[in-house]
Amino acid sequence: MDVVINEVLSILSSAAIASVIALGLGITFRLMGIINLAHGEFMMIGAYAAVYAGAIGLPWPLGLLAGVLAAAVVGALAEVLIVRWLYSSPELSILGTYGLSIVLIQGVQVTLGKGYLYSSNPFPGAIEVFGVAYPIYRLVLIGAAAVLFLIILLLLNATPLGTKIRAVAADGKLAETLGIRSSRLNLVVFTASAALAGLAGVLVGPLGNVRPDMGADYIFTAFVIVIIAGNSIVRLIPAAILVSTVQNLMTFWIDPMVAKIAVLVIALLVLQGLRRTPGEVTV
């Protein structure tokens, strides 16, 4: 029984991290048609900001805020300078955001150095959950991811802003004729996506290390989740849970490499099985 509870919690917390990263990525990909190869670097910016905030003595919540803000600012700048020229072409977004990611990584390396930064755990220790001692921080992650998804889904589905965003996603030109300024909405959405990345960066910091090229390790799993989720933001949650379940259980019972390949096979099956109409977004 303990093993089961432990596994369930592990899967949920893995899914929590993965889904938060995938959320930002999925928003730009599905709502704006941007393949953002710099998403991992926005995470990195967030993580750095949080570490530096911690270093000058700010408490963790402020560090979290600093990470989100830093990534949002960089994201907004990137949108204004580059990304808004890429909406017409998902292919071009590959080159543009690839260049952006190199600029961010190398920029940080040159100015702040290559070494690992230490991001300390704001909630050390473990508490008992159904008789199993489980790290508090992991539980915080699960809660944070749940709240975050709730907020985003409410924003998209129950506010005028969300309606506008979905309208622009479905047909930017048409939305413009209805009086929606799609360029400003795109800025908002991209900045929000970068802020989410920053948040994810702050959250994963204490689980690993903070370094200029940290983003790459996270981004591919997130991409696979976005692929499996298809056109839906809500489906990111089951997709993340599916991936985490397969990865955790197969790692536990068989082998991590088999687990990784199994996840990729699922992604392939989904791509082959579910044909979707481009531009159609269900939330």
């Binding site: 580059i82 071009l92 080159l95 543009g96 690839y98 260049g99 190199i102 990584i105 190398q106």
Partner: peptide, 13 residues
Amino acid sequence: LLIMGVVFVVVVR
């Protein structure tokens, strides 16, 4: 690498 990144971005733009 930094220069390369900037070049890519400038080209895209």
